[in-house]
């Protein structure tokens, strides 16, 4: 076990970095789907928008001002995008997931195409801010500092989201809406407002994750689909509408993705979807999902 860990420590740490990034993307997707039963396939486009904001504002030669500015701009765009997506999907709320998927997939295609028109087909890089752009020795191997910082930021965000949803009255309202939104309306709360806020906050997190993931993934066409699929796997594995499920699912899928690539490079996609299939067979409601019962 000790030898194995020595050999794969970089893979494991990478898995945590990817896992926390995935959590930031997936938690909004999970809450919106679990809460309002809206399948938002445009979630990947929000991440992609954040990534191109990072590439445009920060570029390859990063400064702290540029990086923080990009985070702020992406957060603003994400908020606005979330409000817009909430309004677009509201009329489809009582229709099938297929209708919602078609609409939000269409939004994704439009956004992705507009970004290609604006920035071209070539992958763009996003630099890490000064001080985080070097590497540190980790058990003899050089490891990028930025990924360690990403683990720290991701863990802080995870704690913040968890406290908000699990320990505050606003969070209780979100969990109640996930569990039975009609009864939330029956105590006099307009659950459309709850929905818009969660949609906006989740979209903001997805767009900022695009900037945060920039130094790892850069910005390129197709990144939205890659991230959306990983996030959907996280949501299905963790269980709908559950913050704890999104966190555990994201960390698990981060490890599966990272270790799968380093240990079984040829079979990596099979390992990822194989683990999804395994969860679906053993626990179809996800690790932390209940039937009609969501836990934070």
């Amino acid at each position: 076990m000790g030898d194995w860990l020595d050999a794969n420590l970089v893979g494991v740490v990478n898995g945590f970095a990817i896992g926390f990034l995935l959590f930031i993307v997936a938690v909004g997707l999970s809450l919106v789907f679990g809460m309002m039963d809206v399948l938002n396939l445009a979630h990947g486009a929000l991440f992609l928008t954040g990534a191109y904001v990072g590439a445009a504002v920060v570029g390859g030669d990063a400064s702290w001002g540029g990086f923080l500015g990009a985070l702020g701009l992406a957060a603003g765009l994400g908020l606005a995008g979330g409000v817009l997506l909430s309004a677009l999907t509201e009329p489809l709320r009582r229709r099938s997931h297929l209708d919602q998927a078609l609409l939000t997939l269409g939004v994704t295609l439009v956004v992705a195409e507009l970004l290609v028109i604006a920035y071209g087909d070539d992958p763009l890089s996003v630099g890490a801010p000064p001080g985080l752009d070097g590497s540190v020795p980790v058990l003899g191997a050089a490891y990028p500092v930025y990924r360690l910082a990403l683990i720290g930021v991701g863990a802080l965000l995870a704690v913040a989201v968890f406290v908000l949803v699990e320990r505050t009255d606003m969070g209780a309202l979100i969990r109640a809406t996930v569990a039975d939104r009609d009864m939330v309306a029956a105590i006099g709360v307009d659950n459309r407002l709850v929905r818009v806020r969660v949609f906006a906050a989740g979209s903001m997190l997805a767009a900022t994750a695009g900037v945060l993931g920039g130094p790892i993934y850069g910005a390129r066409p197709g990144l939205d689909a890659t991230i959306l699929i990983l996030a959907l796997v996280v949501v299905v594995v963790g269980g709908l509408g559950s913050v704890r499920g999104a966190l555990v699912g994201a960390l698990l899928i981060g490890q599966v993705d990272s270790l799968g690539r380093s240990l079984l490079p040829d079979a990596a996609p099979f390992v990822l979807f194989g683990s999804l299939a395994l969860v679906l067979v053993l626990r179809p409601q996800g690790l932390f999902g209940g039937r009609g019962v969501a836990r934070a």
Partner: peptide, 15 residues
């Protein structure tokens, strides 16, 4: 039709 994951106190505060 309670909200199963919410505590008694949370039900009372929200309502």
């Amino acid at each position: 039709r309670l909200w199963p994951p919410l505590t008694v106190a949370e039900h009372l505060r929200l309502a």
